[in-house]
Amino acid sequence: MKGVRYYPGFLPLTILCLVVLYAPLAVVAVYSFNGSASITEWGGFSLRWYTDVFTGPEAVRFGQAAWNSLTIALIAATTATVIATAAALAMLRAGPFRGRQASFALINLPLMVPEIVIAVATLIFFSTIGLTTGYLTILLAHITFCIPFAYLPIAARLEGVEGTYEQAARDLYATRAQAFRLILLPLLMPGVISGWLLAFIISLDDFIITNFVKGAGMETLPTAIFGSVKQGIKPNIMAISTLMLLVSVLFVTAAYLINRKGRQAPATPGKTT
């Protein structure tokens, strides 16, 4: 008999899930090597679109846009995750307090407002207070709408972590900071990683809001490519997308290697087996 972790059908569903996620990307990756400019016909294997990305007339623009996108997503996701973690501690570790419901509504507000409304309202707001639109305004907008995406997984995780561990640590004269850093944070980590990842991809993907609050000439990858995708994807866009996938894979590999090195230390608590 198989263990209690096993459920028949869960593995096939996971595989189905991955197939659906990756099939459209396979199309993108394959056609990025297409010698022809059209998606409807195959013109033989070619690297011309990759050459185009790096040396073509729009190379500088795309490079700058990719850089902006990645840095904004990194900063926004990290900031939002820190803010959301703090908020989750207050919401779930401090017992009931006045304004808890209001805080909950507030945290989720960015999720509830349709993007185009946020976009128009934020632009009007920024121009009313005289904030020049540019990198910083994009960043501020991104941090704001990333918060609920970071918060919900973290809070969901925190709800499942009993206070007993920290209490035990406190009983052993750990300071509050030590109890958090050594006990709660490692226990919370899967939630924090999930929240950060969601915030990161949400920021990386945003078009509507960014397009409104960005200054003239300040591009992120979505705003730089949107036009040439809407009329049917150009092969150079497919090459850029494939490169982004490559960057993400490198990023993941690096994180994995660093993480494995760190694992020489004793296993973190919470791996209930």
């Binding site: 020049t132 200054g215 003239a216 036009g227 040439s228 809407k230 009329q231």
Partner: peptide, 24 residues
Amino acid sequence: LLTTAFLASPAFAEGELKVYHWFE
């Protein structure tokens, strides 16, 4: 405000032009 202004508009000696255009 100063930081944003700096980030938003680097100065070009030759001058610049901002075009709002249809895509493609």
